[in-house]
Design a protein around this nucleic acid. Structure first.
Lengths: 164, 164
DNA sequence: TATTGTTATACTCTATAACTATA
DNA sequence: TATAGTTATAGAGTATAACAATA
């Protein structure tokens, strides 16, 4: 009775398929970003997020949606600043905060990277998908994402066994 | 004319949803594996793969499907051997090879970890999915996976810009 | 006191290249 | 010569905890 309901074979297959697709995709993307722009995935995510939101964000807002700890974000921001792709300035209104700004050089690198990135996603992921498939993915994965964002992170995990 | 066809908004959304779900899931799984069994994700993958294939595999066969470089696999196998979860012995037929065997202790740790793992996947991913959804995921992601496995890894990536 | 961000530290993972040994 | 695996090395990423400064 302490056993959770086992995963049905179809559920297992879906879980594995998701895992494997994401892993293969991430690997290919990493390679492409490094080759085309000398960027790591987290660095690209930061630049892309900045670009998508007007080019300037506070550290805290930048962290939203990204997986980082604060120190991890500080580290990545420092890397990007070293390369001149981003600048950090004290926040205008709140003196505690730091505003991260995408520099022209940062935009250039994004411009260098995006075509290959789009092409890669097209070729790897979209080639075998119809519009209907894509709508289905959006529907299903969108629901999973919303649920995951809502779900209690970890404390609710029941009956953790003692360490080995 | 050098620009690839841009991703349609629905395609972008599907790409992001996949990325985000996988990232959140992976993060939660890492946490669970560490808490319940002191395992990292790659270590768990190795143990699970061994368990699923009868408990014994050559290093090379073990590497199949996992992303590692050979040295990376050696490293992980060494970690697992230190903890006694796995043993390494010279190959029976081919003296060059090494056979990795899941030990009883290794099975125990898997047993400690699996219930929480299944429960997590149930709670995070399956809660919001109907049987139809799961079938759709298998269909769509299965096709993407097959295509990715087939696709030319990287050399075919066109027009890489010079580094920044 | 709570929040924003940085720093110090330590650890895990990964990859490349050089190397050993067997086929 | 090719294959199986290890080792040495070096670098990148991440997290935790302690810290400084502002709200």
């Amino acid at each position: 009775m302490t056993e959770p309901t086992p995963l049905a074979p179809a559920q297992l297959a879906a879980y594995f398929a998701l895992t494997e697709v994401a892993s293969l995709l991430q690997h290919a993307v990493e390679q492409q970003l490094r080759t085309d722009g000398g960027l790591t995935t987290p660095q690209f995510q930061i630049l892309a997020r900045l670009n998508a939101t007007g080019g300037r964000l506070r550290m805290t807002d930048l962290a939203d949606g990204l997986v980082y700890s604060r120190s991890g974000l500080t580290y990545q921001a420092a890397q990007l600043e070293k390369r001149g792709l981003v600048s950090r300035t004290p926040g205008a209104d709140d003196e505690r905060s730091v505003e991260v700004t995408l520099t022209p050089a940062g935009r250039d690198v994004l411009g260098q990277v995006m075509p290959g990135h789009v092409e890669l996603v097209q070729r790897l992921m979209m080639t075998s998908l119809s519009d209907t498939d894509i709508a289905a993915l959006n529907d299903v994965l969108g629901r999973v994402r919303d649920h995951m964002r809502t779900a209690p992170p970890r404390s609710a995990a029941p009956r953790a066994a003692k360490r080995a």
